[in-house]
């Protein structure tokens, strides 16, 4: 039960929420441990209580039962404003302040925390670069002078301004087109890697969840239906509900979670002995997903070379891909 840097960043115990005049719980007794540095995705259909659960963590919603800890302390111990200034929060509608420049939007929390002005200015530029917006071009713009995707980048920068240890994201990319969404997902993964921030991310988009999560929490009617790694949830759906929701029978979807590195047949010796002639022309990177490998195999050859740092480290055939898929079910 230790809560150091490696302990739980967020811990929920039997958390239940009921809105006034509702006849049932929006969240009905949820237990959840999120280790520091994790990327946890809450997945479920509309109305299953994802947002409600997320909002109990920064006390925008008060549970009538249960306990919530962030960074080892109960959220009811500090006043709500102090708590929220230490937790990043990003919503689908972004909610930038329309009368304030990009820089002033990002500066809101540091200002509330009374950082010195030069530290704030430096932090604003640092964050704009983190979300890949040129500070010189964007600093003084107003929100209405930004595209939807740019607005959400600023929303993320604003949430990260005071270096929160935990970041809550509620369907942050639900309102942008598919191409922008993919690039924002990539940025989010990169930011997660670089900063090590614990992220709780809400979505009802299965592919988004599989892409981002190192743990997926599947919700149904206010309860957790299954909680596990993407691969685990896909390979071993706990209930028919999870299976249907994730379309877990889809083998190709599962392949997108496996990597060439983990399935390859190692090259023996320095030579290419054993590899069929003609197959050597086709190669994939060790980090490629088996889904990519499968499409290479279908298009080009019976086996492909796996390369890493320009060196050939093994081969993959249809049989190897299939074996990896079967192994993932165990």
């Amino acid at each position: 039960m230790s809560d150091g840097a490696t302990g739980a960043a967020v811990r929920l115990r039997d958390v239940a929420v009921r809105y006034p005049e509702a006849d049932r719980d929006a969240v009905g007794g949820v237990d959840l441990d999120v280790p520091a540095g994790a990327f946890v995705v809450l997945l479920g259909p509309s109305g299953c209580g994802k947002s409600t659960l997320l909002r109990t963590i920064n006390r925008l919603v008060l549970p009538y039962r249960g306990a919530i800890e962030v960074g080892g302390s109960d959220v009811t111990e500090s006043d709500p404003e102090t708590l929220r200034r230490g937790i990043g929060y990003v919503i689908q509608a972004v909610g930038l302040f329309p009368h304030l420049s990009v820089a002033k939007n990002i500066a809101v929390v540091p200002q509330l925390l009374r950082w010195p002005a030069d530290a704030i200015a430096a932090r604003v530029d640092e964050l704009l670069e983190l979300v890949r917006l040129d500070p010189a071009r964007y600093r003084e713009r107003l929100p209405r002078e930004l595209s939807g995707g740019e607005q959400q980048r600023v929303g993320v920068a604003r949430a990260l301004a005071a270096r929160p240890r935990v970041l809550l994201m509620d369907e942050p990319f639900g309102a942008v087109d598919a191409i922008v969404r993919t690039s924002l997902q990539d940025e989010t993964l990169r930011i997660h890697r670089v900063l090590g921030t614990t992220i709780l991310f809400v979505t009802h988009d299965v592919d988004e969840a599989l892409r981002l999560a190192d743990r997926i929490v599947v919700m149904k009617e206010g309860r957790i239906e299954q909680d596990g790694t993407p691969l685990r949830v896909l390979a071993k759906p706990a209930t028919p509900y999870v299976e249907a929701l994730l379309d877990a029978k889809d083998a190709v979807r599962r392949l997108s979670l496996l990597h060439a590195r983990d399935a390859l047949r190692p090259a023996n010796g320095a030579d290419t002995a054993g590899a069929p002639l003609g197959a050597q022309a086709y190669r994939v990177e060790a980090g490629a997903t088996l889904r990519t490998v499968l499409s290479e195999l279908l298009e080009h050859a019976d086996a492909v070379d796996v390369v890493e740092d320009g060196r050939r480290i093994g081969t993959l055939s249809f049989a190897d891909v299939r074996a990896a898929l079967l192994a993932s079910e165990r």
Partner: peptide
């Protein structure tokens, strides 16, 4: 004042008074 703007203000840790002063009235 858009609901999302107030929601964001609250989520960022502004008190009701700060929301009034810095968000509601200016807008």
């Amino acid at each position: 004042v858009p609901a999302a703007v107030r929601e964001a203000a609250r989520g960022l840790g502004m008190s009701e008074q700060q929301i009034g002063l810095r968000v509601d009235w200016p807008l």
